[in-house]
Structure formats: structure tokens, C-alpha cells
Design a protein around this nucleic acid. Structure first.
Lengths: 215, 215
DNA sequence: ACCTGAACACCGTTCAAGT
DNA sequence: ACCTGAACACCGTTCAAGT
């Protein structure tokens, strides 16, 4: 059977989930697809482009129609911001090392990211200026990426340690291991995530009531 | 002359500044020091440890005694937070690709970073609980790292483009090129940085006055 | 104690040539 | 159009052996 671009992408996602970003090499991917390394370069011009396509796939559903819009209730801007942040974090936690991958490949294209634009639109609903909403969207994105990269790298360290100690089955899905994080950090990562998120939302809110809040 | 650990570190910093993180290889470093690659492994167990030492060097003066403490004036907590954030950003902008280097090597050791602890202490001065101050310190760090990585990668892209077009002298210091950022983004990066920073500070402030601010 | 020489086990990418 | 075979130009790391 002939190799399709989508097959290469799916194969790459499988290696990411099973072995992590460090083991995702063009040669390993080629072997897993039963093909020579050079064959991949007919479908993708280089590895960076492949990683970009993976990042797009990971984030494809993040900026969907908000669930709260499906009934007739109009959504509060802060709920929309929080929902977007939650969806972004969840999308990355669904694949091993996905936060690191997204942070690395989106570093240069963040300006054009649909997710960032959704953040900006949600922030603009609050009533702050469009310019301020744009600025806030970057801050939000930096925070969500930073938190999730950190969170995911820690769970990954714990998975590695647990496997060494033989405590956890090697084929357990990464998502079920999040609770082991509590060894090194205090409390539920989701709660920690929401705390920082609320700091932002309150920061935006402060800009609404008071026109000169920073002395 | 015999090679000292400090010589290896200095040589690595020179390659970082002149050629960037992508060209910082153990083999290239060995060549620049007039030594065989294997010699480096007597001074550093591996490349990761060397990168960690570089990150420590880049950040060594960030958490110094605040300038405002040198006279007798007591410092406001928010001024201390802002000063720390500015010093962290400046320290990374002083070396090519330093934000990327710090973000990559501090991903796993952020919990123990002195800079993060300084953020936590400054935030605690506001009157929020120690626990909340710790959480806020992570958010602050994620934001500063994310913003600076983004900012620095953009100036680096512009330097590369400018060199290709022959617009800028190849030996111009990176710091003098920050203004070219305005082609792709709106406004001064320092102003953008302060906007997001104030969002955080106001978020902390909101937690002081109102005990249940998030509905 | 500190370094050389030489290897080991990899990488990403290119490209003529095949089908 | 799609892939193979084979190479090019690299990596980080190890380690016996030298001084």
C-alpha cells in the first residue's frame, strides 16, 4: 500500500504517545512505517514541518464553538476565557510531551495561532480595548503553555521513576498518572492551574472598573 | 595551559553569544578550546549539566538586593515583583537565545529556582497567604519566560532576515536590533511586557480587597 | 589529574536511480 | 508520482591508553 501524508502524521503521533518527543526521529518513524527515511521527505519537506502539522492536529478542536453557546444562554467573557484555557490545557495533556511540542513549534507562529485569536476575542468581550485584549491574549497563552509544559514534564519524570521502581504498569495511559504529581508539588495541578488563570481574569477585570489602576 | 571548568563555561557562553544555541555543540566547543571532544567530559558529566551551569550564570544576579533597598525607603511589594521581572527579562535578553536556554533547562528545576522563590517572597509581602504567593510565583515565572522566549525568537528571526538582505552589519550587537521587532508586532516589547506584568499584579491586588472575587 | 585517539551508536537531509 | 539505496555531514558519549 502507498503511504499517504496522513499515515505519516498518524505514525508520528503514535510514536509521540508511546515513546515521547525525544524518541520521535525521522529514521524511527520511517522504520515504523516500513519505509526508508528518504521516503518521508516526499510527504513533508523537513522534520520541523511535520512537528508543526502535529501541533495543529493536537490543537484542532481547542477553539470550537463554546459548549455554553449550544443552549441559548449568552456566555460571560470570563467563562469563555476559562473554557478556552481549559480546552487548551486538556488538548495538550492528551498526548505525551505535547505541551513541549506545541511550545517549541508555536514559538515562532504564535501571532497567527487561532487559539491566540480566540483568547483575544474572549478578552475583548470584557470591554477592554481591542489592543489590550490582544496583549492579554499573549499573556494568557504564555501562562497556559508554561504551566502545562511544567506540569507535563513533572508527570513524565514521575512516570519514568515509577517504571524504574516497577510500581506502575508500563502500558498505563499517561493521563491516569497525573495524581502522582502530588509527591513533588502541593495539591491538584488543575487547582493550581485555575489559580493562575483567575489572577489573569481578575487583572483584566481591574482594568474595567478603574481607568488608572497601576498607580 | 590546562583547561579549567570555568574556561569551558566561558567558551560555551561565547559560542552562544556569537552563533546561538543551535550551533552550541560539544564538538564545536572542544574545537574552539583547542581540545578533543572527550576532554569536556572530564569537566562536565554531560551537555545537559553544562547548559544548566550556563543558565545559572545567566541568572546569577537576578535575585540580588533590590536597588530601592539601598536607601532607607521600604519597598512596596508590587515594585519588588516588577523589579524582579524586569531583571529576569533583562538578564535573558543580554545573551543570544538565553530565554530558550533557561526555559529548556529550568523546566525540571523551576521549583527550586532562587528566582522563583524571590517572586514568591515578593508576592507574600502583599499580604496574600504564603500558599497563594507560591502559586502566584509560578504564574509570574511562566509569563516572564514565555514572553521573553517569544520576544527573543522574533528579534532573532529579524536579525537573520536583515543579514540576508544585508541591511545590518553582521557584527552588530543583538540588543541594538530590538527596535526592528515593530515590523511584525505592534509597539515596544518592553511596554507589552509591562502590560502582562500589571495584569498579574492587579490580579494579586484583587485577592487582597475582596475575599471572593471570582463569582 | 587531565587529555588524546578512536570508536560506537546514532541523527536530519539529499538525490540519483528505480518502478 | 512515489520510493529505494546510499551517501554526506554531522551529533553526544565512552573509554582504553597516554602524560
Amino acid at each position: 500500500m502507498q503511504l499517504r501524508r496522513g499515515d505519516v502524521l498518524d505514525g508520528a503521533m503514535s510514536i509521540l504517545d508511546e515513546y515521547g518527543l525525544g524518541d520521535l526521529t525521522m529514521r524511527r518513524l520511517a522504520t515504523s512505517l516500513g519505509v526508508q527515511p528518504g521516503a518521508l521527505y516526499w510527504h513533508f519537506p523537513n522534520k520541523q514541518t511535520l512537528l508543526g502539522a502535529m501541533a495543529d492536529k493536537i490543537l484542532e478542536d481547542v477553539d470550537a464553538i463554546p459548549a455554553s453557546h449550544l443552549d441559548g444562554t449568552p456566555t460571560d467573557w470570563s467563562e469563555r476565557v476559562v473554557e478556552l484555557a481549559h480546552r487548551l490545557r486538556s488538548a495538550m495533556l492528551a498526548h505525551r510531551d505535547a505541551a513541549e511540542l506545541v511550545a517549541a513549534t508555536y514559538a515562532s507562529r504564535m501571532t497567527n495561532s487561532r487559539v491566540r485569536e480566540s483568547f483575544a476575542s474572549a478578552a475583548a468581550m470584557s470591554g477592554i480595548s481591542r489592543e489590550h485584549a490582544e496583549l492579554a491574549s499573549y499573556s494568557l497563552l504564555y501562562y497556559v503553555l508554561g504551566h502545562t509544559v511544567d506540569e507535563q514534564s513533572h508527570t513524565q519524570m514521575i512516570v519514568a521513576g515509577a517504571l524504574t521502581r516497577g510500581t506502575i504498569a508500563p502500558d498505563a495511559p499517561a493521563s491516569s498518572l497525573a495524581e502522582y504529581d502530588e509527591d513533588l508539588r502541593d495539591g491538584d495541578p488543575a487547582v493550581r492551574f485555575d489559580f493562575g488563570l483567575n489572577l489573569f481574569v481578575d487583572g483584566i477585570r481591574a482594568r474595567l472598573k478603574d481607568r488608572t489602576p497601576h498607580s
